[in-house]
């Protein structure tokens, strides 16, 4: 039970970091932490007590297996979040070239 609550706490830490920090790199890290927490939660949901990894083995007696669906989903979600992070980092590098600063409060040309 505490594991699930800790995942949500991690998610909130990531959300705070993404919302309140001024440095562009810290915002990207915050979004990364949120994604990791969501992936963690999803894999934890698949746990069945006393289960083993969901691979068939004909020579062993298998009592119960954990749910394999969250593992497949998280494998895809990790790659998706990776692409988003890569795009954000590329935009951040170009932003530094053009504006000369990583401070999000100073990158504020579009106003109104």
């Amino acid at each position: 039970m505490t594991a699930y609550i800790l995942c949500l706490v991690l998610f909130s830490i990531g959300l705070y970091c993404a919302l309140r920090k001024r440095n562009v790199v810290k915002i990207i890290i915050g979004i990364g932490i949120m994604e990791y927490a969501a992936n963690f939660l999803f894999v934890l949901i698949g746990y069945r007590s006393g289960g083993r990894s969901p691979i068939y083995a004909n020579d062993q007696v298998i009592k119960s297996m954990v749910d394999p669906l969250p593992q497949a989903v998280v494998a895809v979600a990790i790659v998706l979040n990776l692409s988003v992070t890569l795009l954000l980092v590329a935009i951040a590098i170009k932003l530094y070239e053009k504006y000369g600063t990583f401070d999000i409060t100073k990158i504020n040309d579009l106003k109104g």
Partner: peptide
């Protein structure tokens, strides 16, 4: 198809 993985993770 029989253990966690597949093309995505292998590609990474």
């Amino acid at each position: 198809h029989i253990s966690p993985g597949g093309g995505f993770v292998g590609g990474v």
